Computed example of a mutant assay.
Amino acid sequence: MSTSDARYHHGDLRRALLDAADELLEESGSAALSLREVARRAGVSHNAPYHHFPDRIAVMKGLAARHMRKLLGAQRAAAEQAGDPFCRLRAVGRAYAGYALENPAGFGIVFDPEICVPGAPSDEMAPLIGENEDLIADLVARCLTDDADPATRAAAAAGVWSLVHGLAQLITSGHLPRSAADHALDGLGALLATPAPGA
């Protein structure tokens, strides 16, 4: 171990490498992420990353999990500060879109299908995805009537997530202004309270 590598021991090396990778991701996008460049940015030998990451994809998966945790944290913090269920749902939606706008590269890597493979996420990512789905499902369920059946609850949760995620991507890519999220999310309450045709 080199002198520079010795600064990062007892688990610190992994964090330092992810910090460096996160900086590169924000500055230049995922294309700039190579193990050699991450090591250079972290100030360690070019072999040091292999102690924790076998390849570039593993680094990107680590970053995806890091940003998923931050996205979850932003949503939970927003929910705790809001009042009734509809207010909490709107607040969480705004936090979701806000995180995407403020961390576009990090948000993008979370949902990159080559990094977080649909149906086969990494062991680190899988529980985080489950927590995100549970958070949204619980908030939506609290906005529905007590007699809503499980299928209706599941469909409503999927619809809300799709709406919020779509807004986040459209705002991040510049196709919609940030204010569009507020207008769309303000309509969530009415949408959830409207019975489906034939119901």
Rank of each mutant, 00 (worst) to 15 (best):
L89C: 06
E80L: 11
A42V: 00
A120P: 00
E102Y: 09
A120E: 06
L72I: 11
A168R: 05
H52I: 02
E124G: 07
H52M: 08
G198A: 00
L188H: 08
S34H: 10
S30Q: 12
L71T: 11
L191F: 14
R56Y: 08
I115C: 07
G198K: 00
A16M: 02
H52D: 12
L24S: 03
D112L: 05
L185Y: 15
A137L: 01
L144S: 05
L185M: 15
Y8W: 09
L63N: 05
L185V: 13
A199D: 01
G119M: 07
R66V: 01
A58C: 02
E114G: 13
A168K: 08
H10M: 14
A82F: 04
N103F: 11
S28K: 13
V140G: 12
T194R: 05
E23L: 15
E114Q: 14
L188S: 06
A91S: 10
D12H: 15
S30W: 11
M68F: 14
A184H: 14
K70G: 13
E133L: 14
S4P: 12
A105P: 08
D12N: 14
M60F: 03
P85C: 10
A32Q: 00
V44D: 01
R41E: 09
K70P: 06
T172C: 14
Q81R: 15
A105N: 11
A137R: 14
R15S: 10
L176A: 01
A190R: 13
M125H: 08
A64M: 01
Y99M: 02
A120H: 05
I129Y: 09
D147C: 00
A79P: 09
R88P: 08
E114D: 13
G73T: 07
L13T: 00
D134C: 13
D112T: 04
L71R: 13
R178P: 10
P127R: 09
H51D: 12
L33E: 02
A74R: 13
W161M: 14
Q81D: 11
R142V: 10
A148G: 03
A180L: 04
A141C: 06
A154E: 04
H183T: 15
G83P: 01
V160C: 04
A78E: 10
A91R: 09
D19K: 07
R76L: 15
T194A: 03
I115F: 11
G189Q: 09
P118I: 03
A42C: 01
F53I: 05
G130L: 10
G93A: 02
R7H: 14
L128W: 06
V140H: 12
Q75W: 06
L24R: 10
E102V: 12
A105Q: 15
G119W: 08
V110Y: 05
R88E: 13
K61H: 07
P54S: 13
A193F: 15
R66G: 01
A48H: 08
G166Q: 03
E133V: 14
P104T: 03
R15Q: 09
G73R: 08
A20I: 04
L128C: 03
T3A: 15
A95L: 01
I109V: 12
Q169Y: 04
A21D: 00
I57N: 13
A21Q: 01
L72F: 07
